[in-house]
Design a protein around this nucleic acid. Sequence first.
DNA 1: CCTAACTCTTAATCTAGATTAAGATTTTTT
DNA 2: AAAAAATCTTAATCTAGATTAAGAGTTAGG
Lengths: 192, 192
Amino acid sequence: MSQLLLNNIQKHIQLTDEEKYMLLSITIPKKLKKRQFLIQEGDVSKYSAFIITGCLRSYFVDSNGFEHILQFAIEDWWITDMMSYTSQKPGRLNIDALEDTELLLISREDQLALFEKCPKFEKYFRIITENGMVSNQQRLLDNLSLPAIERYKNFTKKYPLFLQRIPQLQIAAYLGITPEFLSKIRHQMLKD
Amino acid sequence: MSQLLLNNIQKHIQLTDEEKYMLLSITIPKKLKKRQFLIQEGDVSKYSAFIITGCLRSYFVDSNGFEHILQFAIEDWWITDMMSYTSQKPGRLNIDALEDTELLLISREDQLALFEKCPKFEKYFRIITENGMVSNQQRLLDNLSLPAIERYKNFTKKYPLFLQRIPQLQIAAYLGITPEFLSKIRHQMLKD
DNA sequence: CCTAACTCTTAATCTAGATTAAGATTTTTT
DNA sequence: AAAAAATCTTAATCTAGATTAAGAGTTAGG
């Protein structure tokens, strides 16, 4: 089960058995049922979560009660409220499970201690964070420059697996449109 | 002149004189006149730039020829096309100077070699990247959840110094609205 | 110092996407 | 298996912000 995490890490750095042990000794397994929360608004995100099976979303509830989704995450991905996790202050994001989910958690405290003991892990997380930043930037550019229909087409190309797994309601909240308008777009796409 | 960079770094990690030397021996000073490019679309971003004086912007030109600004950067900030810089593949961003500017450049190659020689620097850039990711996420949330007038108010609060320095045309391209609409918003704000 | 090139504003018209509402399906709970 | 809750669709109406156009103010280069 931890093998998925080790494999993910070993795409970027090589680990000795001792280093594997160092890592695994600080990971905490956790299960969430569908709709259970990992983090709620106002919490300090003590942990970053690596997903073994299942699917989570991180989202923000605006002053009108609308949800806006920052990230979907499935097997082999990390998710947390980065702002709260890095600062260890209360965050504004919620993270909950869209399916029954198995996670490995690592606390910020243990993570930083691990970096001190073994800088290789700092490299791994530096790379993960760089990649996350790039995909965030790409998404911001899409939101600034493309109409909703193009953003949806990009989404279907980039994340074809999500289409089967994630309700349209959620996809609309990720794209920044209403479910009604997404429905209209999909109808329109069938015609051409 | 390099003192600004050393101070910035020493907010996050402590450096020995030798480490300072290691860093400075790979930085390349560069000057740009207003309107000169650091990077153009299609280039590989060989360098990340730390700003000593002046102001730059990174932006994307969409298929209709409209510019969308990802980042403004002034003294004491880093800027690059992260996608291209980390992958060393051609990028889609332009970076140019809004004012006469002095920079210190570091190549991706030298940066990665520095990380190997001295993991402390990996820590520094991991922190910088984490912070960048957080502010990108915050901006994405603002774009998803707030109307233009609120985004402008947030901008004025977060970057009061930019208001004097950066033309409204550019600020509009950052907020994701037309300059005409920004003008309307500003007029509207005077009334209350 | 003058002209060309930006920059900002105002206003009329237009459109992508929101809102509201209602009905049809599907999923979940009891 | 029935009832309740969530999901998706369609359609009419509405609005935030775009587009177009024109003029005024400001900056910069020759």
